[in-house]
Amino acid sequence: MTNLVEVNNLKAWIGEQQILKGISLSVQHNDVLAIIGPSGCGKSTFIRCLNRLHEEIIGARVEGEVKILNENIYGSTVDPVRVRRQIGMVFQKPNPFPSLSIYDNVAIGLKLAGIRRKSALDEVVERSLKQAALWDEVKDKLRMPGTSLSGGQQQRLCIARALAVNPPILLMDEPTSALDPISKAKIETLLQDLKRYVTIIMVTHNMQQASRVSSKTAFFLLGELIEFGPTEQIFTQPKAKLTEDYITGRFG
């Protein structure tokens, strides 16, 4: 089985501070990888390295190799814009673009990439909103501002926005941590559906979420990958003492 994402000895800095100290792991098609670990362990930085968003921070630096479909995205000729089109991202706080309608929030990635044909856009908007389990709630008010929705709906709108460009990989940075329990549950159910179309790499603080949703789990601590394996094994028979301590809540 070929690796969709292959990370080799990835190191990342912000200024003088080293955030990631040599991470290596691989992700296969239709995996759901959960990244767990205490705050400040480099989880977010790790996924931000996968779509080259980390380098947008002033003073940020990356070393090592990230291969997506066997191409190193840190190669000298690779355009980060092209990399990001293949990788969707959902952020911790729902952030639909202000003053854009629900429709335009989903369509903007394609519109700004130069696609103008209305029938094509309509189709993508409907498909993405259905995938994000939001279509039924918003189909009659597609022209309303995206910010008029509730927090949970906004987050699903952001998922639809990311899915609209049809990326094989979806990165999620604590996608439910700013939501109420019901919205959280809806998004978790949604993730079960989504893994049929996309490979998901998500950061989460929530152990139950990681164990419910993911097929693989990576445990990070202080910028290092402590343990990586099938979720069931990590949660039932962790090999490292640190992993066990963290999962059972002895620290973190």
């Binding site: 968003l53 990399v83 991202m89 460009v165």
Partner: peptide, 12 residues
């Protein structure tokens, strides 16, 4: 994070 959301969509 709004800028990042735009960049993450592969928009220049």
């Amino acid at each position: 994070h709004y800028r990042e959301a735009g960049l993450a969509l592969g928009i220049q």
